[in-house]
Simulated scan of single mutants.
Amino acid sequence: MTSESFKPIVYLKENCPFCLKVRLFLLESGLASEVESRDFAAGTEQEEAIRAELSPHLDKVSFPSAQLEPGRYIAESDDIIAFFAAKAGRDPTGMTVYRNYVDGVFAMSMKLWKENQELKKAASAA
């Protein structure tokens, strides 16, 4: 497959806040139709198959992941967004829905997750 006919692939896990961040960017930027999205639910055979597909290409398989170009894989939401933003000449900071999610719900979820991790650590040390 030549790079001219290659369509980037994003691997998005259901109910993953990082995956939703990538999906919102792709939708709001108008790029969703220019990528192949492989969506799956946690704990399914489809997830196992995707992990097996990605494991030779990534040090650690996590989601979201993407094959941006033939043989070029990454697994970090901000890096995936930066790639597509640069490619399309779009600035995510000016995207209303994306920013509302990142600065609102996403930021609060990350804060709560960090607090939970700290509480677990303190509880296990007690």
Results as ranks from 00 to 15, higher is better:
residue 1 M to S: 10
residue 2 T to L: 07
residue 3 S to W: 00
residue 3 S to V: 12
residue 4 E to R: 06
residue 4 E to M: 08
residue 7 K to C: 07
residue 10 V to H: 02
residue 10 V to W: 04
residue 10 V to C: 08
residue 12 L to C: 12
residue 12 L to I: 13
residue 13 K to S: 06
residue 14 E to V: 00
residue 15 N to D: 14
residue 17 P to F: 04
residue 17 P to M: 12
residue 19 C to G: 14
residue 20 L to R: 15
residue 20 L to K: 15
residue 23 R to F: 09
residue 23 R to P: 00
residue 24 L to P: 01
residue 26 L to E: 09
residue 26 L to G: 07
residue 26 L to P: 04
residue 27 L to R: 12
residue 28 E to S: 09
residue 29 S to Y: 05
residue 29 S to F: 10
residue 29 S to I: 09
residue 29 S to K: 05
residue 31 L to H: 02
residue 31 L to D: 06
residue 31 L to F: 11
residue 33 S to P: 02
residue 34 E to G: 13
residue 34 E to D: 14
residue 35 V to S: 06
residue 35 V to E: 05
residue 37 S to N: 04
residue 37 S to G: 07
residue 38 R to T: 01
residue 38 R to I: 03
residue 39 D to L: 13
residue 40 F to P: 00
residue 41 A to G: 00
residue 42 A to G: 03
residue 42 A to D: 11
residue 43 G to M: 11
residue 45 E to H: 07
residue 45 E to W: 01
residue 48 E to F: 02
residue 48 E to Q: 15
residue 48 E to N: 12
residue 48 E to K: 13
residue 50 I to S: 04
residue 50 I to P: 01
residue 50 I to A: 04
residue 50 I to K: 02
residue 51 R to F: 02
residue 51 R to C: 08
residue 51 R to Q: 12
residue 51 R to W: 02
residue 52 A to Q: 14
residue 52 A to C: 04
residue 52 A to E: 15
residue 53 E to K: 05
residue 54 L to A: 05
residue 54 L to N: 07
residue 55 S to V: 05
residue 56 P to Q: 07
residue 56 P to V: 11
residue 56 P to K: 04
residue 57 H to I: 03
residue 57 H to C: 03
residue 60 K to F: 12
residue 64 P to T: 12
residue 65 S to V: 05
residue 65 S to M: 03
residue 69 E to V: 06
residue 70 P to Y: 03
residue 72 R to P: 00
residue 73 Y to P: 03
residue 73 Y to A: 11
residue 73 Y to C: 10
residue 74 I to F: 03
residue 76 E to Y: 04
residue 78 D to P: 01
residue 79 D to R: 08
residue 80 I to D: 09
residue 80 I to S: 07
residue 81 I to F: 12
residue 81 I to K: 07
residue 81 I to V: 15
residue 82 A to Y: 02
residue 84 F to Y: 10
residue 85 A to N: 07
residue 85 A to E: 08
residue 86 A to L: 12
residue 86 A to D: 14
residue 87 K to Y: 00
residue 88 A to M: 06
residue 88 A to T: 04
residue 88 A to Q: 03
residue 89 G to M: 14
residue 93 T to V: 11
residue 94 G to S: 15
residue 94 G to W: 13
residue 94 G to E: 14
residue 95 M to S: 13
residue 97 V to H: 09
residue 97 V to E: 13
residue 98 Y to D: 09
residue 98 Y to E: 11
residue 99 R to P: 02
residue 99 R to I: 05
residue 99 R to M: 15
residue 100 N to M: 10
residue 101 Y to H: 07
residue 103 D to E: 15
residue 103 D to Y: 00
residue 104 G to I: 03
residue 104 G to A: 08
residue 105 V to K: 10
residue 105 V to A: 15
residue 105 V to E: 15
residue 105 V to T: 15
residue 106 F to Q: 13
residue 107 A to C: 09
residue 107 A to G: 09
residue 107 A to K: 14
residue 108 M to G: 00
residue 109 S to D: 04
residue 109 S to W: 06
residue 110 M to N: 13
residue 111 K to C: 06
residue 111 K to E: 12
residue 113 W to E: 12
residue 114 K to D: 06
residue 114 K to A: 10
residue 115 E to Y: 01
residue 115 E to Q: 12
residue 117 Q to K: 12
residue 117 Q to D: 07
residue 118 E to Q: 06
residue 118 E to W: 01
residue 119 L to Y: 04
residue 119 L to C: 01
residue 121 K to G: 00
residue 123 A to D: 05
residue 123 A to E: 13
residue 124 S to M: 10
residue 125 A to Q: 14
residue 125 A to I: 02
residue 126 A to L: 13
